[in-house]
Amino acid sequence: MKRFILFSLVGIVALASCTKDSATPVTIISGTKTISVPFSSATAFTLFRFSDSTVVANTDSASNKWDFGLRFTTFIVNSYAGGPGSAGAILNNGTFDATPTAPTTGYAYDTTATQRAIKDGSWYDYNGATRTFAPKAGKVFLFKTADGAHYAKMELLSVDYAPFVGMYPTTLLYKFRYAYQANGTTTF
């Protein structure tokens, strides 16, 4: 009897994994990316799209082609004041690996130009002595993408100055890792 239960359990597990494999091929797009962001609050935002991990030209800012944008230390998401899309964000405390799913509700949007989904200053520590922006440890960004139908998680790894000549830097290099679920579910 015991043996039978064990046997059937194995069968169910095998069956389950089989179904999953056939229904959803690999749909999680993940990796580590470094993007260049202007060190200025006056120039155009650098826009990013998760679905193919691409930096989108700023001429496409009035479209659904991007999910979030960065300028200096300001994040925007593609919704309301940010853009025509439906992108939202949640900044959670936790580790990237210990965040296996994204919620479907509770996202903040770029409601107004001053009320952004991601509050400036909420995710980094500025060190006046070394003049560096260190992303706080244990912050996971969860995104709902511009089409309002997909989810991604992201962790900032570092923010550094690009090599520069002269007195002031011009570009910040944002390095982050992320995972995007292309099938529209919330698991990564």
Binding site: N93, T95, P135, G138, K139, L157
Partner: peptide, 15 residues
């Protein structure tokens, strides 16, 4: 378990 740190090499966060 709500205090995190960043790994010096990978920069990834852990508890």
């Amino acid at each position: 378990g709500k205090m995190y740190k960043r790994d010096p090499i990978t920069y990834q966060s852990s508890v």
